[in-house]
């Protein structure tokens, strides 16, 4: 026995931490509670955009162009007379869906590739890891720009670029997990029972390696939102007239002195989105790490 763990109460294992326990630990974390609230708000904005937005995002009010906040347009209007509030609300739709779609695809690809690399090992692992290295040394935004110039601008290509940029991270995380889980006796036991490689990979290795992927997904969502906005800002992302925070930030930038909200509103939302995903990601990481969960209390 060591002084850190007590006789009779063995330390809980990562894999035994249930979903409920994670949520509870996450809610203990003050900053990630804030992040969680913002994320819920952003997603509701995206889902209920048609209900929440006072106007259609592309509806032009040519009598009021580049206005500050009024009763009619709470956040004012843009340079072609569209309602800024509606544009921003619909912008959440784009940002959130790009984040979710890109992360879902890249996590799936990364997990499968990482699972194969970790389980098979040897030259297969070597090749996969060198490929991930190659993708990971290129900075995200540069990668998107290169992709855009190769495939042409457009939201689809931005999403593809984000997927290509983020899957190697997932692959590496899963591979690392699999390498340690693979050596555990229960995997050995499955082999001794005659399990096929596929069964071992998907029935035993995958469920026991997923925890850090949840953390990485939250962080990757934030990164995807940031890259999408950056691409739109640089003009290689979403094409007009679709409402986009990055695009609005860019256009509004030229009118910063006349209508500050034109660029400040989308700018704040981009910051809030990226920040809250990061906060929740950090909170999840702590929640999944039993060492940081602060078990045990002081006896007085």
């Amino acid at each position: 026995m060591t002084t850190a763990t007590m006789e009779g109460t063995e330390p809980r294992r990562l894999s035994q931490v249930g979903f409920k326990a994670i949520v509870r630990a996450l809610l203990k974390h003050k900053l990630s509670r804030v992040g969680l609230v913002i994320i819920v708000l952003l997603f509701s904005m995206a889902i209920f955009a048609p209900v929440l937005a006072p106007y259609h995002p592309n509806e032009q009010d040519l009598y009021s162009v580049l206005q500050g906040p009024t009763k009619k347009h709470w956040l004012g209007t843009d340079n072609v007379g569209r309602d800024l509030l509606s544009r921003v609300i619909y912008g959440a739709r784009l940002s959130m869906s790009v984040g979710v779609v890109a992360t879902a695809f890249s996590a799936t690809i990364g997990v499968i590739v990482g699972l194969i690399a970790g389980y098979k090992g040897g030259w297969i692992d070597q090749i996969i890891m060198r490929i991930t290295d190659t993708f990971m040394v290129i900075p995200g935004l540069v990668f998107v720009l290169v992709m855009a110039s190769a495939l042409g601008p457009g939201i689809k290509n931005v999403v593809i670029a984000i997927i290509l940029f983020t899957w190697p991270g997932f692959a590496r995380i899963i591979r690392g997990q699999v390498l340690s889980v693979r050596e555990l006796p229960y995997v050995e036991a499955a082999r001794a029972s005659g399990s096929s490689g596929l069964r071992i990979m998907f029935k035993h290795l995958l469920p026991n390696s997923l925890a850090p992927v949840i953390v990485a997904s939250a962080l990757s969502l934030g990164a995807a939102v940031g890259i999408e906005a950056g691409a739109a800002f640089l003009g290689v992302g979403v094409q007009p007239p679709t409402a986009s925070w990055g695009k609005a930030l860019r256009t509004g930038y030229s009118y910063l002195e006349r209508v500050p909200l034109f660029s400040i509103a989308p700018g704040l939302l981009i910051t809030a989105a990226v920040l809250s995903f990061t906060l929740v990601g950090d909170g999840l990481r702590d929640a999944l790490d039993p060492r940081l969960r602060g078990e045990g209390k002081k006896i007085k």
């Binding site: 294992r13 894999s15 229960y186 036991a189 005659g194 026991n208």
Partner: peptide, 28 residues
Amino acid sequence: SMIFQDPFGSLDPRMTAGDIIGEPLVIH
């Protein structure tokens, strides 16, 4: 078949006791 030393590590923590015992039945 085989019985392992470590009663903690040799059972998949994400499977129920029934599934662990029944896995070889499914495999074969």
